[in-house]
Write a protein that binds this DNA or RNA. Structure first.
Lengths: 109, 109
DNA sequence: CGTGTAAGGAATTCTGACACG
DNA sequence: CGTGTAAGGAATTCTGACACG
């Protein structure tokens, strides 16, 4: 049973000003990292950027890497690689579950 | 050991517009419930109200009670009563812990 | 490349008040 | 009592651009 907690961490509700305060980054930097496809805020009514706490964490991570001399493109590639790893992991789990279902019957997890 | 998780739920970062969308309440209503001391948003730089997810939950609770015909004053009294109950509970726990410490030595919890 | 900044405009939020009931 | 609304103003956010390097 996957516990679907309210998941406040992923909810995109924070405006850029607050994100700036929370991360110590300038709004310019935050918008730029979006331009470089490192973060993906929502838009409220198609206009104002809204971020999640998860985005805030990602931004602090990005800030550290930038400080360590990484370029945004490198950071992006790293993220894509990790993303792919996670996806494969999920696929693998799904296949195993599929085999279990096939042999021992269907049940919802 | 009290786990101090990031506690995103309590962090006051959401502007009134988003709260309005999240709760379905008008901004007028949200401000009014603050005036009646049912919620206590922070202010960013002393101006703009900032709410937590916890506030959002409280607001939905308030909305239900209003719908059920309760007045804001009654709702407030209820909350104060519950608050007092929680405080007494905490005090009680602290006293028991104090006795344990006195008899079996000091340890951090 | 990553970031600052001034520019002009649009949307957001604020307060105090009047209205209805 | 609880809520809507118009009013005027202030702060926020947006975009596209120029600048430096």
């Amino acid at each position: 049973m996957v516990r679907q907690n309210p998941s406040y961490k992923e909810k995109k509700v924070i405006s850029i000003g607050v994100v700036s305060e929370l991360t110590g980054l300038s709004e310019r930097q935050i918008r730029y990292y979006e331009e470089r496809k490192l973060i993906f805020p929502d838009r409220s009514k198609g206009r104002n950027r809204k971020y999640s706490f998860s985005d805030v964490e990602a931004l602090m991570d990005i800030a550290n890497k930038i400080e360590d001399g990484f370029q945004t493109l490198e950071i992006r590639r790293e993220k894509l690689k990790e993303q792919k790893k996670v996806e494969q992991e999920e696929l693998r789990k799904k296949m195993i579950q599929g085999q279990l279902n096939a042999r021992f019957g269907i049940r919802k997890n």
